[in-house]
């Protein structure tokens, strides 16, 4: 069997092996490529940054462990950014697998900034029924979530003396692994006129561009690259992230080398497969002509 037929009939386990190697290697030996930022992510960053200190930000972290590598770094960076600006954070999830991840993030980042639950932030927890929950929040946050994740009544919390509905929040960010962005746009952001951004998995990012162009989303962050860009912006503006806050920000940056390597591998393998495909085609044609 010659090279061309070998490539065209390559066992997929060999491709799997190459991918595995290319993911693991850069994680062990980081190259630290510089990361450029895109306008989509810059506009999320500047929107959060432009809010007056102490604004209310509603964060919907609608993902579960399966998309943790892509979206959890964004949650960390966004929380850090909000707390850096003393924003009040209302965080919740529409995904049953989400609470444990959010709890981890909010408790860790909250502790680093000395923020207390109920005053500076509230983790509302999980409620089933996407649109039903978001619709409920536009009427009353404490009515939809009578208790927070830790089972404390929300109506008593200082944070909810000022804010009652989604309308009272200054910004919404949906960190979504699924199709919840549309729900937030249709039931919260658009009718209540609260500006909104979305961070989603790289796969679904392309799907939200129509909303981005129509101005219904201020910005889009796609996958780990988006998170890495946000980290870079954060580190540029707030230098203390570079030193003390390394545990909070910069997780996505580490993953970018591996992603670069795998993308490059896939591109090269597609090109190789196509060259072989052409050679094989040409051979066939010649054979046919000879016969």
């Amino acid at each position: 069997m010659d090279f061309v037929t070998l490539i065209l009939n390559l066992d997929r386990k060999i491709i799997f092996g190459c991918v595995a190697l290319l993911v693991v290697w850069p994680l062990l030996v980081p190259i630290q490529m510089p990361i450029g930022t895109t306008p989509e992510v810059r506009s999320i960053f500047s929107a959060i940054d432009a809010l007056p200190n102490g604004s209310d930000v509603m964060i919907a972290a609608d993902y579960d462990p399966s998309s943790k590598p892509e979206l959890q770094p964004f949650t960390y960076s966004l929380l850090a950014h909000c707390f850096e600006k003393d924003h009040k954070v209302h965080i919740l999830t529409l995904w049953p697998g989400g609470p444990a991840l959010i709890q981890q993030a909010i408790e860790e980042v909250g502790a680093q900034y000395g923020k207390s639950s109920g005053t500076d932030y509230c983790f509302l927890g999980y409620k089933p029924g996407n649109a039903a929950v978001v619709g409920g929040l536009t009427n009353s946050i404490t009515g939809t979530y009578p208790t927070d994740f830790y089972n404390r009544p929300t109506a008593n919390m200082p944070i909810y003396q000022r804010v009652q509905r989604v309308k009272d929040c200054d910004y919404i960010v949906d960190i979504a692994a699924g199709a919840t962005v549309e729900v937030w746009i249709a039931f919260a952001s658009a009718p209540e006129n609260v500006p909104m951004s979305a961070a989603c998995t790289a796969v679904s990012a392309a799907g939200y561009y129509p909303y981005y162009q129509a101005g219904q989303l201020d910005g889009i962050s796609g996958g780990m690259k988006g998170s890495a860009e946000y980290d870079v912006l954060l580190m540029d503006k707030y230098p203390n992230f570079k030193n003390g806050g390394a545990r909070i920000a910069g997780n996505a940056v580490k993953g970018m080398d591996a992603q670069s390597a795998v993308h490059l591998f896939i591109v090269l393998s597609i090109i190789l497969a196509n060259i072989c495909y052409f050679i094989a085609n040409k051979r066939q044609r010649e054979e046919r002509r000879n016969a």
Partner: peptide, 8 residues
């Protein structure tokens, strides 16, 4: 290629 740092 464009969505990863190597593109830049």
């Amino acid at each position: 290629v464009g969505r990863v740092p190597i593109g830049d």
